[in-house]
Computed example of a mutant assay.
Amino acid sequence: MTRAAVATAFGGPEVVRIIDEALAKPAAGQVLVEVKAIGVNPIDYKLYSGAFGSDQSTLPLHLGSEASGVVVAVGNITTGPGGPISVGDEVIVSGAKGAYADKLLVPADAVLPKPASLSWEAAAGLLVVAGTSYDTLEVTGVKAGETVLVHGAAGGVGSIVVQQAKARGARVIGTARAVNHNVLRGYGAEPVEYGDGLLERVKELAPGGVDVAIDTVGTDEAIDVSLALVDKARLVTIAAFGRAAEEGFPSVGGGNPQSAERRKKARLDLVAAAGDGEFEVTIAKTFPLEDTAKAHEELKSEHPRGKFILIP
């Protein structure tokens, strides 16, 4: 048996329930993981909000896609992206369905080795944000010596973009609330406060121009300022899909199969980079699995910087 958090209807976080479910034994190519920590992402509550439809036949919706834990059983001939998988392995689960659970039966392809240097919480919250960040940098082709403007630079994805762009040798200007400016300076970025006059403040910091703009917030301000500064081919958003379609600049995520493939191919490298300390995932807050609805409610409002994590 496993306890799992599911959405029993479409609506707000009040529709989330904890249920008990039977689990089959792993078949060939499957792995059973005892979950230690679970990553929480905005897409998790958007799926039951009705934003992507409200087909009643899909209920209950099993939530979550990323976790970390220990392998407790394997099927025959079980090999994952990092090689053979054995009972007792500490692993990261990525791209799974229904990761909000205390036990998780997943395909071996969704299981990657967890570096010992990463905590359960950091490992569980790693690959959605790091994969999204990597995607934006690949699409825009960020190179050493370029100036990159990151909107929402202190957020879950934005902070990883900053660190990965710096690792590529780029100069980074990041928009954020003043309370987060010292954090951005610690990552080697030059912070700027968003709001009225943002375009002028960025131009003052970068009189020679900006090469790339990466939007992680989806506001009209972020898009308008970016369009005024960079070529459309070197602007990317992870949130403003409507504006991207209207204006003709790239977006990543949102069901884009090319994005999914890029992120999948990069998983092992991203895990290794995090394990080696090349970038860090900040944990904002942890919640017991029973408080999934509360976690979603808080994530929808202004909240501490970093990832929310559920603990079974």
Rank of each mutant, 00 (worst) to 15 (best):
T79P: 00
V271K: 08
L184I: 07
S54I: 12
V210W: 05
I223N: 01
P60Q: 08
N182V: 11
K36N: 12
G83A: 13
R201D: 07
A124F: 09
F10H: 08
V271T: 14
K114S: 11
P13R: 08
P13E: 14
T78C: 15
A24T: 09
V202T: 09
G306A: 08
D196Y: 07
S301A: 14
G218L: 02
E190A: 13
V236L: 02
A37P: 02
D220C: 02
R17P: 02
A51L: 15
K294E: 15
P84L: 09
E14W: 10
A124D: 09
V139G: 05
V252G: 06
N180R: 04
G255F: 07
S65H: 13
V179M: 07
H181S: 13
G156D: 07
S68M: 05
K25A: 14
L126G: 01
P42S: 11
G306Y: 08
A22F: 11
A144I: 05
G152R: 10
E21Q: 14
S57N: 09
V161R: 03
A110S: 15
T216L: 11
E66D: 15
R3V: 00
A233G: 05
A295W: 04
A124C: 10
V40N: 09
A213E: 10
S226M: 02
T237N: 06
N182W: 04
I173K: 01
E204T: 15
A189T: 10
G75L: 06
S301K: 13
G29P: 03
G12N: 13
L289Y: 14
V236I: 09
A28I: 02
G98E: 05
A239Y: 00
V71R: 00
V139Q: 14
G11A: 10
T58Y: 08
L268A: 13
D269P: 02
F249K: 00
K36P: 01
I38Y: 09
A295C: 11
G186E: 05
G152N: 08
V230K: 01
L199C: 12
R168A: 12
Q163H: 11
V210P: 01
I311S: 13
T140V: 13
A123I: 13
Y45K: 03
S54Y: 11
E66L: 10
G209M: 08
G242P: 01
V150M: 05
L137W: 04
I283Y: 13
L112K: 01
M1V: 09
A244D: 01
I309S: 14
K264C: 01
A176Y: 04
K285C: 06
Y48P: 01
V91G: 03
I77K: 15
L59H: 07
I173R: 00
N256M: 12
E14F: 07
G186Y: 02
V281C: 11
D269S: 14
D196K: 12
V271P: 02
V31I: 10
H151E: 04
V111F: 03
L149Y: 11
P312G: 04
